Computed example of a mutant assay.
Amino acid sequence: MIEVVPSMPDGHGAQLKLRPPRALTAHQFLALFAALAGAMWLVAMLGWWAGNVFAPAFALLDSVIVAAALRWLWRSGERGEEITVGPDVVEVVLLEARRTAPVGTVFRAHPYWVRLCVEKGGERISLASSGRQVEVGAFLGPAERRELADKLQDLLAAASGRNR
């Protein structure tokens, strides 16, 4: 998901907030876990009734593993990137999975010296300046990466004065 937020009141510059796409809401993730755990416990109880005394213990272990895997998957969807393009600076900030708190600035340069590199038909998008390079939007789908490349190209051209 790409969200464009104007960063300056005078209309110069913008901030792009990138988030990985999510197929399920939190409620749907919970319903998925309940369905999977319910099916595991139903089979485990049938196994226990047939004489397998270890089936409930296996179902408990399996439920914990599935819950941990779904939790990790949900948390990995909370990461993101913020790309600020202004008349004086281009900045890329990584956001961690916990409450979108910033991890730190990984790239900072003047927009006139920033190159937008689109490699392999849009599969990899990176910003480069002064020997430093950072990949952006790696978690986005192909169509969103193409959209990101177009928006970055327009914002960089406007910020550096190359669109005149």
Results as ranks from 00 to 15, higher is better:
12 H>M: 10
64 V>W: 09
72 W>P: 07
94 L>I: 09
164 R>W: 11
155 L>N: 03
19 R>P: 05
137 G>F: 02
128 A>G: 00
50 A>P: 07
127 L>Q: 01
70 L>G: 09
45 M>K: 05
121 G>T: 01
160 S>Y: 04
67 A>M: 13
62 D>R: 07
70 L>C: 10
99 R>Q: 10
91 E>V: 08
102 P>S: 13
77 G>N: 15
7 S>G: 02
48 W>K: 12
72 W>G: 10
8 M>G: 08
60 L>P: 08
25 T>A: 06
19 R>H: 08
116 L>G: 00
75 R>C: 11
37 A>Q: 09
127 L>S: 00
80 G>N: 01
146 R>S: 07
6 P>K: 03
157 A>M: 15
19 R>D: 05
17 K>N: 14
16 L>A: 03
109 A>K: 01
78 E>F: 07
20 P>R: 10
84 T>Q: 02
28 Q>K: 03
25 T>E: 05
132 R>K: 13
82 E>N: 04
68 A>I: 12
23 A>G: 09
75 R>H: 15
109 A>C: 01
97 A>W: 15
99 R>D: 13
161 G>A: 04
53 V>Y: 14
52 N>V: 15
126 S>E: 05
5 V>W: 01
116 L>F: 00
11 G>S: 07
155 L>H: 03
74 W>D: 11
44 A>R: 09
64 V>H: 05
90 V>Q: 08
135 E>P: 08
54 F>Q: 07
51 G>E: 09
96 E>Q: 15
1 M>D: 08
37 A>H: 09
65 I>C: 12
64 V>M: 13
156 L>I: 00
139 F>V: 03
104 G>K: 04
26 A>S: 03
63 S>T: 13
101 A>I: 13
5 V>K: 00
40 M>A: 15
62 D>L: 14
75 R>I: 12
118 V>T: 10
162 R>I: 07
145 R>L: 01
12 H>I: 05
47 G>D: 12
99 R>C: 08
41 W>K: 11
40 M>P: 05
146 R>E: 08
30 L>D: 12
79 R>M: 15
158 A>Y: 04
128 A>M: 02
153 Q>A: 14
27 H>S: 13
41 W>A: 13
3 E>F: 09
8 M>N: 14
91 E>A: 07
43 V>K: 11
75 R>T: 11
36 L>V: 12
52 N>K: 12
124 R>T: 09
134 V>W: 00
9 P>F: 03
78 E>K: 12
92 V>G: 02
119 E>L: 14
102 P>T: 06
84 T>L: 04
87 P>L: 14
89 V>W: 02
148 L>T: 03
42 L>P: 05
12 H>L: 09
154 D>V: 15
29 F>D: 06
76 S>A: 14
72 W>M: 14
131 G>H: 00
